[in-house]
Amino acid sequence: MSDFMYAISLPPILRSLTNLRAILEKAVSHAELKKIDPSVLIDARLYPDMYPLSRQVQIATDVAKGAAARLAGQEPPTFEDTESTFPALLARIDKTVALLESFTADQINGSADKTILLPRHDRTTEFKGLNYLTDFVLPNVYFHVTTAYAILRHNGVELGKQDFLGNI
């Protein structure tokens, strides 16, 4: 029944991270063209109580790598959240993409009914694999990629819907 888990997890996540990378590359070009200190964009937020661009990228990649590892029955690797430049953020995306591409369909398929324990702050949430993917992982990846897009668009980076969607 769950031979679909790979198809509905890693390919859309990889697509989102690839598109996020392209969006960040446009931000680099924008900063150079407009002579804006890149840290202004990296530290930008949509609202004071929201995370900055750098944290949006970190969370999107954390959720992505955690999903692949947990669905495959592995412990998620830890990445330090120290990126403060565009090259460092791009490298983090590249490292995450390489990790995701190392997982095979055989490792992910069959995980729809697997119990997933997700440590979160002061508690652990229990999911079945499919619900973890559809109710937590995909919405979180999309949210943080969308928020990164919105931060950059709000700050004048010329982005459109196609940048979020990528090549269809």
Rank of each mutant, 00 (worst) to 15 (best):
A98F: 07
Q58M: 13
G73E: 08
G160R: 06
D113A: 13
P12N: 11
R15L: 12
L41N: 04
I23Y: 09
V57W: 10
T147C: 02
S9I: 05
A64K: 05
E32Q: 15
V97M: 09
S29N: 11
Q74C: 09
K35I: 00
K65I: 12
V40P: 00
T134P: 00
D94R: 03
S111M: 03
I36S: 11
L99R: 14
V63E: 02
L20D: 07
F143D: 06
A64Y: 04
T125E: 14
T124V: 15
A68N: 03
D163A: 13
R92F: 03
A148M: 04
F143Q: 11
H154S: 12
H30G: 06
A64D: 09
S54D: 12
S16Y: 08
K114Q: 15
S84M: 10
P76K: 04
S39W: 05
E80V: 01
F164N: 02
N155G: 01
N155Q: 10
L20A: 09
P119D: 02
Y47D: 13
H30M: 06
L130T: 00
D113N: 07
M50S: 15
Q74S: 09
K114V: 04
Y6R: 11
V157N: 08
F79H: 14
M5H: 06
P77L: 12
L99N: 13
M5V: 13
N140L: 09
P11K: 10
T96V: 10
A105S: 15
E126H: 11
F103V: 00
A150W: 01
F79S: 05
I42Y: 11
T85V: 12
L117G: 00
A27D: 10
A72R: 09
E83G: 04
P48M: 00
K65A: 04
T104C: 08
L118Q: 13
L89H: 10
L152F: 05
L71Q: 03
P52E: 10
Y51G: 01
F86R: 02
F79E: 15
L33P: 01
D62N: 14
A64R: 03
D135F: 02
T96N: 00
K26C: 07
I116L: 06
F103D: 05
Y6T: 06
H154M: 05
I151F: 03
F86K: 01
D94I: 00
P38A: 13
I108Y: 08
Y142K: 01
L14Y: 01
V145K: 01
A88I: 00
E158F: 00
Y6L: 10
V157M: 04
I8P: 05
L10F: 12
K114W: 02
L130Q: 05
V137G: 03
T78K: 14
M1H: 09
